[in-house]
């Protein structure tokens, strides 16, 4: 049996890419492969996607109506029951995993390694602290289950080509009824690439000036097939919904190309992008902090630069 259990994140239909990244992390801990646990009201489609990932030994499913929404209080006791046979339980460091995994750890009576960004040894891991201003190496003593949330941007997604068996587990663990899912309101509701998986991300800050002005960024994004993000300042100002926020308290992303328009470069924002392949910054202010980390910088007004970019790209 695999020693690493990965908790799948999904929307009922598709596996979130963060799971494939957790599987990659698991392979660094134990090359023999990981078991992936899917909880849902209908796990069929998601389990099939998980089974096709390289490095997955088995896919386990917990199918019951109570698992329709990912409620930490409902999932945690079921995961804790399965986890007893494993040395490691990994979840993604997304809002799904951040909500759920500490609850699992507490039920197991162990700590959690949050935002695991590197595997140094079987029980030794690196994680960012102080908004990424320091990196802490931690060790989990022998004999304790390692529970961790995996920082997606630090690991490549596991590839396709796996053919793991899928096994349904018995669903006898009692779950509470004190927590009810009401609704999910998706902010941007766009068909653009998801921020966390997009190859290119175009992002705007306070310098964009208004909700209406963000249309210019959307136009550029659609031309180059990019996802659209924003700084906390732009979200706080109400230009865009919260699910577009990139940074320490928003999404931590690692696209191949990140283009920052009118973003000053507050440290908490930079924390969210420092694993990006190439950072391009466009800002009117030559002193903007973003230029200190950008691979390519252009001092200029985004309201002139973006139309010109669109013209050049045709």
């Amino acid at each position: 049996m695999a020693r690493v259990l990965v908790i799948a994140e999904h929307d009922g239909t598709h596996l979130n890419q963060s799971t494939a990244r957790c599987v990659s992390c698991a392979a660094q801990i134990d090359p023999a492969g990981a078991d992936v646990l899917v909880l849902g009201a209908d796990c069929t489609a998601v389990a099939a996607e998980a089974a096709a990932l390289q490095g997955v030994a088995r896919v386990l499913t917990l199918t019951r109506p109570e698992n329709a929404a990912a409620l930490a209080a409902v999932f945690a006791p079921q995961i804790a029951a399965v986890a007893s046979g494993y040395g490691y339980v990994l979840g993604p460091s997304t809002t799904f995993g951040k909500d759920l995994m500490p609850r699992v750890a507490a039920l197991l009576g162990v700590g959690q390694v949050s935002d695991l960004m590197g595997v140094d040894g079987p029980r030794s891991f690196r994680r960012p602290i102080y908004a990424g201003n320091a990196v802490l190496t931690v060790e989990v003593p022998e004999g304790l289950t390692v529970v961790a949330t995996v920082r997606a941007a630090s690991f490549r997604p596991a590839g396709a080509g796996g053919t793991a068996p899928v096994e349904a587990l018995a669903t006898s663990t009692p779950v509470p009824a004190h927590t009810r899912f009401v609704e999910l309101r998706t902010g941007s509701g766009s068909t653009r690439p998801d921020l966390q998986t997009a190859r290119i991300v175009v992002s705007g800050g306070r310098g964009v000036g208004s909700e209406a002005n963000f249309a210019l960024l959307y136009q550029l994004a659609d031309r180059i097939g990019a996802g659209v993000g924003a700084s906390r300042a732009a979200v706080d100002a109400g230009f865009v919904p919260n699910d577009m926020q990139v940074g320490q308290t928003g999404k931590i992303i690692a696209p191949e190309l990140y283009m920052a328009f009118g973003i000053s470069g507050a440290i908490q924002h930079l924390t969210g992008i420092k694993d990006a392949g190439l950072i391009v910054a466009i800002n009117k202010d030559p002193e903007a902090a973003i230029f200190q980390v950008a691979d390519v910088g252009l001092v200029g007004d985004l309201f002139q630069v973006i139309p010109e970019l669109l013209k050049k790209l045709g």
Binding site: A134, T137, V293, G297
Partner: peptide
């Protein structure tokens, strides 16, 4: 349960080029 072994500065990105 989780022992802190050592603290380090993060690997900083270096300043790139301006166009």
């Amino acid at each position: 349960r989780v022992r802190s072994l050592r603290y380090a500065e993060p690997v900083e990105r270096t300043k790139g080029t301006m166009v």
